[in-house]
């Protein structure tokens, strides 16, 4: 069983988000980068599936050389080998095109992404990959098992869930529930240093969209405190002042 996991390098979840160049670019100053948490879940599940199906896990990242510590972390968690497409990840379409180009003749049985990246939150790469590779995709899954030649996945729907059986190969975007986060052990970290990390050059992709400006939310006014002895006042305020109930 051959599994490909697409990983993205994102600002740590505690990052204070600021912009520079007249609010046209993300201010990277002092920012700590990490493996996107959803991709980490995808990777954890991929490693478990590879172990029980005697398979391999390749991780792929579209990024410049600065993403290599994140790729090494993925190798430490248990990926077999890694590929870096040497380009700044312009947008989801660009990333999906690069990964599809790499994957198209490699016969992966399963391609996993995180449900979305925590920086641009597009949640687009999984479904774009499915379309580019002409295979089924499920964008947000909470469970993933392999039964014979099928992937059995549980997908979230509003107010419930849907269980699907789909013949492999498929692409799926994973969310919490698919696996527990794995913490790399010492052996993993040591072996990650010598696992293969191949660098490939990007293909050219037409640009369909571009971010032209960033904003941060307007700060809220200060909190109006209600005395704990009279909580019913809160309900009055929500009704008469905020008019939300």
């Amino acid at each position: 069983m051959k599994i490909l996991v697409c990983i993205s390098n994102v600002p740590d979840t505690t990052t204070k988000i600021t912009f520079n160049n007249d609010n046209t670019s993300f201010n990277e100053g002092g920012v700590q980068y990490v493996l996107n948490p959803y991709d980490e879940i995808a990777l954890s599940r991929a490693v478990e599936l590879a172990e029980s199906n005697s398979g391999t896990v390749t991780v792929i990242n579209v990024g410049e050389a600065s993403t290599e510590p994140t790729i090494r972390k993925a190798l430490a968690v248990g990926a077999t080998d890694a590929v870096r497409v040497n380009a700044a990840p312009r947008d989801a379409y660009f990333v999906a095109q690069q990964i599809a180009n790499y994957a198209k003749d490699k016969a992966f049985d399963l391609i996993l992404t995180g449900r979305e990246s925590i920086d641009y939150n597009g949640a687009q790469v999984a479904a774009m990959l499915g379309e580019l590779l002409h295979i089924p995709s499920v964008s947000i899954i909470k469970k993933l098992n392999i039964e014979g030649g099928n992937a059995v996945v549980e997908r979230e729907i509003e107010g419930g869930k849907e269980v699907l059986s789909i013949p492999l190969p498929i692409v799926a975007g994973t969310a919490e529930g698919v696996a527990e986060w794995k913490i790399p052990n010492m052996r993993g970290i040591m072996s990650a240093r010598t696992k293969p990390l191949n660098v490939v050059e990007p293909i050219s992709v037409e640009q369909l969209a571009q971010i032209v400006k960033f904003d941060t939310p307007a700060p809220r006014g200060s909190v109006k405190l209600i005395d704990a002895a009279e909580p019913e006042k809160l309900i009055d305020l929500l009704h008469a002042e905020a008019k939300v109930i």
Binding site: Y93, A123, V125, M128, G130, L132, S137, S139, I140, A209
Partner: peptide
């Protein structure tokens, strides 16, 4: 941008060579 919408928009975008603006 529902759970199903998230699965559809990117595929439609690729088919139509369209920019996909989610959320």
């Amino acid at each position: 941008n529902s759970f199903s919408g998230k699965g559809l928009a990117p595929r439609i975008g690729v088919k139509l060579e369209a920019a996909v603006i989610s959320g």
